[in-house]
């Protein structure tokens, strides 16, 4: 697995100039955008970089060769998951540092707890997105995974809309639920959020392992 990490790090480092450009954009836009722009933007780029290493493996029919190296299919799936979340977390930390730097320049330091809460929310959202994208990319490949992603998110949107319409039709009032959430202590909400994120990560790693086990090259 160490060899695969080495390969992925070296592939990501090919994008040094791109990363530097992203940091400049993040800093520049942070001055005019909302309080967590750099965090969300750089974390999203981290997600893109993680997915890009999967595309590079597949590009030029590289996967059959990788599977002849001393790497088990399970090991490859595990490496992809671990590397992707590490890259995402690294970019998230970088985004937070850039954001804090921008705050310092503007001399408007945020309330620490609120900043950490919003940053953690972004990390959680992008971890869930990555957890969905990794098995999709491995199963469908570079091209088809984009279509699968649009179909999946379209289906989620449609289910949401349908749920809202049904709720309206049945006169279900969500206000008590919203009030309950608002009155729940932040620590409990954070624990629930962490649980949801963990659920996605575990399911994603199980699906990724199963996809790799069945895949033919």
């Amino acid at each position: 697995m160490r060899g695969l990490f080495e390969k992925d790090i070296r592939l990501v480092l090919q994008k040094k100039a791109f990363l530097f450009l992203i940091m400049i954009i993040a800093v520049a836009l942070s001055f005019s955008m909302d309080d967590s722009f750099a965090v969300s933007y750089v974390t999203m780029i981290g997600m893109v970089l993680a997915i890009t290493t999967l595309s590079y493996d597949e590009y030029d029919n590289g996967m059959p060769f990788l599977m002849t190296l001393p790497v088990s299919r399970k090991g490859y799936a595990a490496e992809k998951q671990i590397f992707s979340y590490l890259i995402l977390t690294g970019c998230w930390i970088l985004g937070m540092l850039l954001q804090l730097g921008c705050f310092a320049i503007q001399d408007k330091m945020p309330e620490p707890l609120a900043f950490i809460e919003s940053s953690l929310l972004y990390l959680g959202i992008f971890v869930i997105l990555l957890a969905i994208l990794i098995p999709l990319e491995l199963h469908f490949g570079m091209e088809k995974s984009r279509i699968a992603m649009f179909v999946l998110f379209g289906a989620c949107f449609a289910i949401g809309m349908l749920g809202t319409k049904i709720g309206e039709f049945l006169h279900i009032d969500l206000t008590p639920l919203i009030q309950t959430v608002q009155s729940t202590p932040a620590a409990v909400l954070a624990a629930i959020g962490a649980g949801i994120v963990l659920f996605f990560v575990v399911i994603s790693s199980l699906i990724t392992g199963a996809v790799m086990k069945k895949k033919e090259f």
Binding site: K7, R10, Y56, Y59, D60, G62, F65
Partner: peptide, 8 residues
């Protein structure tokens, strides 16, 4: 027709 990434 398969080998290391062309970027390396």
């Amino acid at each position: 027709d398969s080998g290391f990434s062309r970027l390396l």
